[in-house]
Design a protein around this nucleic acid. Structure first.
Length: 887
RNA sequence: GGGCGCGUAGCUCAGUCGGUUAGAGCUCUCGGCUUACAACCGAGCGGUCGGAGGUUCGAGUCCUCUCGCGCCCA
């Protein structure tokens, strides 16, 4: 087969990459081939990532797409490196969100509330709903190209994970780390359930500060409150023990307006005498601080609101919502002349339900708690000891602050959808915690606790429950601890801290090193809009990632996100940038297309090796070949370093610039000359071109899996890039001389192009020129220079009208058209001024004896070299200026 | 109130251990369909690195103060 026919036999690729025709086909192929399914007994070193489970009700948003891109890149690279690489998918059951969704569905379709059904019937409806509507995100993960092991998909409510939940609950209960208590908890009156502290978001809201006079005459104090309606539940007034103003009142009672009750005045250290009047009302049943005071001072706790935050007593106020009761109570007090002062608006922090944004009501109730102190200590120590590394490391401060000051975790939820608390109560006040493999007590009067567990309780088990725990499975033995946890820094406490607590506790028998749930935690930023603003529906700047995947392809979205992933900072993203990434994919497509049309060759890519072994020996290669190979293998090393530092932005940027600025703009252009010559020269170029593209595609594959696979299959004829070996840096290919030579060549070409552009010559216009080489370095590159700058051989009658000189090459041109001497003089004068500035700077440094004596020798030598270079440059420019006719 | 982070080109961001002339993407200007690619090519414009002071031979980089912004916690 001749070279010419080889070129024609290569598959014809369209001139544009069309992701829509490629992505689905490749994803199905990968799954059919089972590339993402792992074998715990393969003997390969394990690598594992568990996805922080997305919500079963949710749809893919850019935050998911971002995290998934990172996870997929890490897993794909590990797989290529020969690891048994598991990325385990799944979802959590999202107790509140899912129950709310199904209740709404039930109301709109059947006009029923869940209370019209039995608990069992309702839970069945939730499962039905899940099967019909849930898990939309799983399909979207396929769009994104996630290389997950679908055969291991898990759900927090499935049998195995439910058993894990029951097992750990029982263990914690028996160890005294789970207890039941009556406490003030955060109550969401809309969701009708308790919430944990971190499910409450504090926000400054406009409110009011009302000062109320309690009691009369000598026995009166003024208290200020933002929640006037709670005064109905006051059972005391507290002052600081050292506060002279109120000393006479301590121990006496005072009349509580509107109620006719008399309440004691107590002294409590907790009171800040500087704030307001120095006296505070105490409502133990409706405020956490007041609850504490109440406990210390033996005050009653009077509940005045029901679970919907409606007032339950006190005549005219009964039945009013808390926000209706507030002005009503103020009005009544005002009528009695008891309002001393009112501030509106009064800005203060108000807790909101993170799920539905309803203002949270502190409520006294019986709940289940995890005693976190010992667990949190262990979770903190694992990071302090370096057994778990946080990236970026400054996040550790926030992490320690949390685990070292954590309050006990309220884990009971008043819902029907979730893991029901495995505690039974007996007719004589018995309480029995039942393990998952035990039978609950039966008989008259026994019943199970009606609450379910916080969804995060089951999510916290995810790194081991999904691998089969509590059974000692092959998966668990092989893949635990998992390698990396990738998640947004906003849920450091929700996921990471709790997974740490439970992982260390449940797997403690493995010892300190092996009980951690993961070795590295990568905390990525949040995706924001193109101006760095938070995306939200209300702002109207939210973007559906699926739209961008439809328009630009999944690779374009992934590359944009990964390229924005600077450690520790948020990721702004705009459509322009996705478009730019699409353009990059298309550029790769066309460069490979060029290579294929010119018969680029890739020898078999051996497992564990790369194709550089099959390249011609370096003494047969051209300088351009040696240059690009040298650069290629530096890039391999740089990409590996960036991966090890989880620095995705840098690795993407490195690959982007290497591929576009070096391979496509220069090597491909330089390859056209030898390819045209044919023969051994062309053969070598084909081999190098093929190798460079092969390796570059493999380096890019973890981030942009689709376009790289499509091209790589065509280029190599191999099975799949997903199981191709990860490139290894071959330092033997380093060639500093070749890099220097090509660097100078680029300078010459760029300078001539700049001259042409300044002179208004059309890019395609051929211009006769004569080249002189003052130095031997670029002597062999005349043809390359002519091709890249559109300079033709001088014909008869050639006469030099002007010249450009750089890097020891003098390019004399014959411009029959009138030359724009003024433009050229401007250009040269500008360059001269720049060069003189540099000379002055270098001279100043060298004249400074402190500098020459104290700075390292290499730095001084650099400045000396710079000065020499600059002086030569100045001479050259002056010569050229002198040669210009006076205009 | 406590803690953390950020201010670098019109916009969004890099900038390693303090060391040669501070970079990128997008935007903008000029010229081009140069048979891989107009989703492209070539050339160019654009920055006293928030401000002040200090350390140093040398500061975008280290220290202090200050102004502005963001986040977490209370």
């Amino acid at each position: 087969m001749t070279e010419e026919t080889a070129a024609h036999d290569t598959p014809r690729l369209p001139t544009q990459y069309a992701p829509g025709e490629v992505e689905d086909r490749l994803y199905q192929r990968w799954n059919a081939a089972g590339y993402f399914e792992v074998d715990p007994k393969s003997g390969n070193p394990p690598f594992s990532i568990v996805i922080p489970p997305p919500n079963v009700t949710g749809a893919l948003h850019l935050g998911h797409a971002f995290g998934h891109t990172i996870k997929d890149a890490l897993t794909r690279r590990a797989r290529m490196r020969g690891f048994e690489a598991l990325w385990l998918p799944g979802m959590d059951h999202a107790g509140i969100a899912t129950q709310t969704q199904v209740e709404r569905h039930l109301a709109t379709t059947e006009g029923k509330s869940r209370h019209d059904l039995s608990r069992e019937e309702f839970v069945q409806r939730v499962w039905d709903w899940k099967h019909e509507y849930g898990g939309k995100i799983l399909g979207q993960m396929r769009r994104l190209g996630d290389g997950v092991d679908w055969s291991r998909e898990r759900f927090t409510m499935d049998d195995g994970l439910s058993r894990a939940v029951g097992t750990i609950f029982k263990r914690l209960f028996d160890d005294g780390l789970i207890y039941q208590a009556e406490r003030i908890i955060n109550w969401c009156p809309r969701c009708q359930t308790a919430l944990s502290d971190i499910e409450v978001e504090h926000r400054d809201d406009d409110g009011e500060l009302v000062s109320i006079r309690y009691g009369d005459g000598d026995t009166s104090v003024v208290v200020a409150t933002t929640r006037a309606e709670t005064m109905l539940g006051d059972t005391g007034v507290a002052v600081h023990p050292d506060d002279e103003r109120y000393r006479h009142l301590v121990g006496r009672t005072i009349e509580l307006p509107l109620t006719g009750r008399h309440i004691p005045v107590v002294a409590d250290e907790h009171v800040d005498p500087e704030f307001g009047s120095g006296a505070v009302k105490v409502t133990p049943a409706h405020d956490p601080n007041d609850f504490e005071i109440g406990q210390r001072q033996n005050l009653d706790a009077v509940e005045i609101m029901d679970e919907r935050a409606n007032v339950t007593a006190h005549g005219p106020f009964e039945g009013l919502d808390r926000f209706e009761a507030r002005p009503a109570v103020v009005a009544a007090l005002r009528q009695q002349g008891r309002i001393v002062d009112e501030k509106r608006p009064y800005v203060h922090a108000v807790g909101h339900c993170s799920r539905c944004d309803t203002v949270v009501e502190p409520r006294l109730s019986q709940q289940w708690f995890v005693r976190v102190a010992p667990l949190a200590k262990a979770a903190g120590d694992a990071v302090r000891d370096g057994r778990v590394r946080l990236h970026p490391p400054d996040m550790a401060a926030r992490y320690f602050d949390w685990v070292d000051n954590m309050h006990d975790w309220c884990i009971s939820r008043q819902l029907w959808w979730g893991h029901r608390i495995p505690v039974w109560y007996g007719p004589n006040g018995e309480m029995v915690c039942v393990g998952p493999d035990e039978d609950p007590p039966t008989g008259e009067g026994w019943y199970q606790d009606s609450d379910v567990l916080d969804t995060w309780f089951s999510s916290a088990l995810w790194p081991f429950s999904t691998l089969g725990w509590p059974d000692d499975t092959d998966d668990l033995r092989t893949f635990y601890p998992t390698s990396v946890m990738v998640t947004g820094y906003d849920i450091l406490f929700f996921w990471v801290a709790r997974m740490m607590m439970f992982g260390l506790y449940a797997m403690a028998d493995r010892g300190p090193e092996e009980s951690v749930p993961f070795r590295d935690v990568v905390l990525h930023g949040l995706v924001r809009d193109k101006h760095g603003k938070k995306m939200s529906k209300s702002r109207g700047n939210a973007v559906d990632p699926v739209d961008w995947m439809d328009t630009y392809g999944s690779d374009a979205l992934r590359f944009t996100l990964a390229r924005g992933a600077n450690p520790g900072s948020d990721v702004p993203i705009g459509e322009d940038w996705v478009q730019g990434s699409r353009n990059f994919c298309n550029k790769i497509w066309n460069a490979t297309r060029f290579a294929l049309m010119n018969g680029a060759k890739v020898s078999a890519v051996q497992a564990g090796d790369d194709s550089s072994g099959a390249l011609p020996p370096s003494d047969q290669l051209s300088t351009a070949d040696r240059w690009i190979l040298s650069r290629l293998h530096q890039v391999v090393a740089e990409v590996n370093t960036a991966y090890e530092e989880f620095h995705f932005a840098r690795l993407c940027d490195t690959l982007y610039h290497f591929a576009w600025d070096e391979v496509f703009d220069w090597y491909v252009e330089l390859s056209k000359t030898p390819l045209q010559h044919g023969g051994a020269e062309a053969e070598n170029t084909r081999a190098v071109l093929g190798h460079v593209l092969d390796v570059t595609l493999r380096l890019l594959h973890p981030v942009i899996p689709f376009v790289t696979e499509e091209l790589w299959l065509t280029l190599t004829g191999e099975e799949s890039i997903t199981v191709a070996p990860w490139p290894r840096a071959d330092t033997r290919l380093t060639d500093v001389d070749a890099e220097g030579t090509i660097g100078e060549l680029r300078d010459v070409v760029t300078e001539v192009r700049r001259f042409r552009s300044d002179q208004g010559l059309k890019p395609g216009q051929r211009v006769p020129a004569r080249l002189h080489f003052d130095r031997p370095l670029l002597v062999g590159f005349e043809e390359h220079i002519r091709n890249l700058t559109r300079l033709t051989e001088p014909a008869d009658g050639f006469s030099t009208t002007t010249a450009v000189e750089v890097a020891g090459v003098r390019v004399e041109l014959d411009l029959s058209e009138a030359i724009d001497f003024a433009a050229e003089r401007n250009r040269l004068e500008k360059d001269l001024a720049e060069a003189e500035k540099h000379r002055a700077s270098a001279e100043a440094k060298l004249a400074n004896s402190s500098f020459t004596s104290k700075a390292p020798e290499s730095v001084v030598a650099n400045v000396r070299a710079k000065l020499t270079e600059t002086e030569a440059e100045i001479t050259r420019i002056n010569n050229q200026l002198a040669a210009l006719p006076k205009s």
